[in-house]
């Protein structure tokens, strides 16, 4: 019985983490923290869009800027779609616009990673309180 409870708790943590990665703020939404989820979603999406506006989708470059791409992918798996678009077309971007675009999109990815970890941690704390562990 305890084993099953532990398994379902782990599955719930995985679901929260995965959902938080799929859509920024969705992890907190699942935990019924709607205000927090809305703030996270709006801030991350707007900041990411500013980055794309400044540098264009050319800043998502898994070949020439791999470390930046690793941080960008933390935003959402939807980055893969943008990456396909970016590599399919020709969107060269250089100089300060490239730097600022990459910094904005990567920092939002790292902020979302912080939110994913926070959502999983809060879910874990709630689970521990419920099971008394």
């Amino acid at each position: 019985m305890a084993q099953r409870s532990k398994e379902s708790h782990t599955l719930f943590l995985l679901a929260v983490g995965l959902l938080a990665w799929l859509v920024p703020g969705a992890g907190h939404f699942l935990l019924n923290q709607k205000k927090r989820a809305a703030i996270i979603f709006i801030t991350i999406v707007v900041t990411f869009c500013i980055g794309l506006y400044v540098g264009s989708i050319g800043v998502i470059d898994p070949v020439g800027a791999k470390p930046w791409y690793v941080a960008q992918i933390m935003n959402s798996p939807a980055i893969v779609v943008l990456e396909r678009l970016s590599t399919a077309g020709s969107y060269p971007v250089y100089g300060r616009a490239n730097e600022i675009g990459q910094i904005y999109t990567s920092i939002t990815g790292l902020l979302n990673l912080l939110c994913i970890v926070n959502a999983v941690y809060v879910a874990h704390l709630r689970g521990s309180e419920t099971t008394g562990g």
């Binding site: 927090r36 703030i39 801030t43 920092i107 902020l111 912080l114 939110c115």
Partner: peptide
């Protein structure tokens, strides 16, 4: 960017 970092950090 600093504003976004402050808001998201405080939200968590």
């Amino acid at each position: 960017l600093a504003a976004a970092i402050a808001v998201v950090y405080k939200a968590t």
